[in-house]
Design a binder for these strands. Structure first.
Length: 277
DNA sequence: AAAACCGCCTGTCGGC
DNA sequence: TGCCGACAGGCGGTTT
């Protein structure tokens, strides 16, 4: 599923092909994708305009369009893919299509239709609760080991739940939360408050290293995720534990375990990640 | 305040 | 073979 590395990969792949191109037509095939605005208004404000820049915040993609911003979230199965020609057949679950004058297109495809598009005045995220309340960017200088320590202090929530809480740290999902906890040797059910300062330092470093390496390999394609060019990522080949229940731990050889933690299937090594340290 | 649960959707998979 | 429930997991909303 698209988490920070996947969304960042989509951003980087789309940057060279969608900026500064006048939009000739906006089609919305799945109406529920457009939030807080009528389809007609959405189309009217974007038609004739151009995307001037493309940013990412957490798992959100933010296209600059004049005095407006188009905010996209892929949720579970969304894809934003650039097609060099409108004659390329559309995928079955195409939700929206932005056509450029030159005949190429940016398409939002989404099997499960959870993805969203918001058009808001630049910087006005009050209507997008998730974006408005987003926590620190984990690959920014503001995310320090000390900040992670502060986030954990006094919180009884399981560390896995805290890592998935977008209002604390922006962009981690199930895959990278599990991979980071494994890299740091921390059990997902440990209470956040029980982490030592040294463990927070290890976890901080693990989060940054896992995310950076995943970005370097264009993200993880399990099923649905594709880059902005429709290609699969490669980080699935470098995952240490995610989706590997019953296989041997790459570090110690013990069979990997899995169980529901904070409502999500969680993978961990019962030997390398002790519940009681 | 925080955690647990549900709804939103569709495709896939395992069991019978 | 086909049917059926469980499951996948991000997020908003509601309940506990």
């Amino acid at each position: 599923m698209p988490e920070l590395p996947e969304v960042e990969t989509v951003r980087r792949s789309l940057l060279p092909v969608v900026l500064g191109r006048p939009i000739s037509k906006v089609e919305v095939l799945t109406e529920r994708i457009v939030q807080n605005r009528s389809i007609a208004e959405f189309q009217g404000l974007l038609t004739g305009a151009s995307f001037e820049d493309l940013h990412r915040r957490g798992k959100y993609l933010i296209f600059s369009v004049g005095e407006w911003e188009l905010v996209a979230h892929l949720r579970m199965t969304g894809r934003l893919i650039y097609y060099s020609s409108s004659t390329i057949p559309r995928a079955k679950h195409t939700s929206a299509v932005f056509s450029f004058h030159s005949g190429d297109e940016l398409r939002f495809e989404d099997v499960r239709k959870f993805g969203t598009l918001d058009l808001v005045p630049k910087g006005d995220y009050a209507s997008i609760k998730g974006l408005h309340s987003l926590g620190v960017e984990p690959i920014s200088p503001e995310f320090t080991a000390e900040l992670l320590w502060e986030l954990c202090r006094g919180r009884q929530a399981k560390i896995k739940a805290l890592l998935l809480d977008q209002t604390k740290i922006a962009g981690l999902g199930n895959i990278y939360a599990d991979e980071s906890l494994f890299a740091a040797g921390i059990h997902p059910e440990r209470s956040s408050a029980s982490l030592t300062e040294a463990e927070c330092h290890r976890l901080h470093r693990a989060i940054r290293e896992v995310l950076e390496e995943a970005i370097a390999h264009q993200g993880t394609t399990f099923r649905d995720y594709r880059t902005g060019f429709g290609q699969e990522g490669a980080f699935q080949n470098r995952l240490q534990i995610y989706g590997k229940k019953g296989e041997a731990c790459p570090r110690c050889g013990v069979n990997l375990a899995h169980k529901k933690v904070a409502g999500r299937t969680s993978h961990f090594c019962p030997a390398c990640q002790r519940e009681q340290p």
